[in-house]
Simulated assay, not measured.
Amino acid sequence: MNNIVLIGFMGVGKGSVAREIVRQSGMVAIDTDDIIESMENRKIKKIFEEEGEPYFRKIEARVAKWLRESVNDTLISTGGGFYKVPKLQKIGKIVLLDAPFETIYQRIIDHPNAQKKLKKRPLFQDVNKAEALYNEREPHYRAVADIVIDVSGKDYATIAKEILKKTAKHSE
C-alpha cells in the first residue's frame, strides 16, 4: 500500500495537518473517525457513551482491515488509539505527529473552539487521566512509527512539507 497513515495523541493536529498535506500535494485524504461515525450514524462520543471503548476498538479494527484491503495512494488520519489496530504497518507508511502533552493540551485550550474540541474527545474529559493516557501511549506510538515528526512550534504548512519530503510524496 502506498498510503500515509498519520498517528498521534488526540489533539496533536492530525486532521489539520492532513488538510494541509492535501492542499500541498493533491492527495486524497480520509479520516478513520469520520468513517466510523458514518458507519455507526453517530458521533464518536456517543459510541463511547452508549457502547464503550471495547466496542469502538472493534469498529476501528474493521476499518483497518478495509484500509489494508481496499485503500491505496491515500492520506489516512486516525484517532488517537488507532495505533493498536492489527497489522497497522500493512496499511501504509506510519507517520507519528509528536509533541509533549503540555503542547497538545495548550493547543487545544488556545483554539477558538476549545470547548467544542474538548467535548468531542471522550478520553480528554479529565486532564490528569488524559496525561496518564498520553504517557502510556507515547512509547507505543514510537514503536509502530516509520517516521516521527516533532510538531512543536511548527505551523501546519511546515509539518506537511516535512511529511511529504520524508515520505517522498512531493507536491506536483
Rank of each mutant, 00 (worst) to 15 (best):
M1I: 13
N2G: 06
N2I: 12
I4A: 07
V5K: 07
L6S: 03
I7D: 03
G8H: 13
G8Q: 12
V12D: 00
V12A: 00
G13F: 05
G13K: 03
G13N: 05
K14L: 06
K14E: 01
G15W: 08
S16Y: 10
A18E: 02
A18N: 04
R19M: 04
I21V: 08
S25W: 10
M27T: 07
V28A: 13
A29C: 14
A29P: 11
I30Q: 07
I30E: 04
I30T: 15
D34T: 05
D34C: 02
I36H: 12
E37N: 13
S38N: 06
S38V: 07
R42H: 09
R42K: 15
K45W: 04
K45P: 02
I47W: 04
F48Q: 05
E49K: 11
E50Q: 15
E51I: 03
E53W: 08
E53L: 09
P54N: 10
P54T: 12
Y55W: 09
F56R: 10
R57I: 05
K58V: 14
I59L: 09
V63W: 02
K65D: 11
W66T: 14
E69H: 07
E69K: 14
S70C: 07
D73W: 08
S77V: 06
S77L: 14
G80E: 08
V85T: 15
P86G: 12
K87V: 15
I91A: 08
G92I: 14
G92D: 15
K93L: 15
I94D: 10
L96P: 04
F101R: 11
R107H: 08
I108L: 02
I108Y: 00
P112Q: 11
N113W: 04
A114K: 14
Q115P: 06
K120R: 10
P122S: 03
P122D: 01
L123C: 10
F124N: 01
F124P: 02
F124L: 02
L133Q: 05
Y134N: 05
N135G: 09
E136C: 09
E136Q: 14
A143D: 10
A143Q: 13
V144Y: 07
D146G: 05
S152N: 10
S152Q: 14
K154E: 01
Y156D: 02
I159K: 00
L164K: 00
K165F: 00
K166V: 01
T167W: 00
A168C: 03
H170C: 01
H170N: 01
S171C: 06
E172F: 10
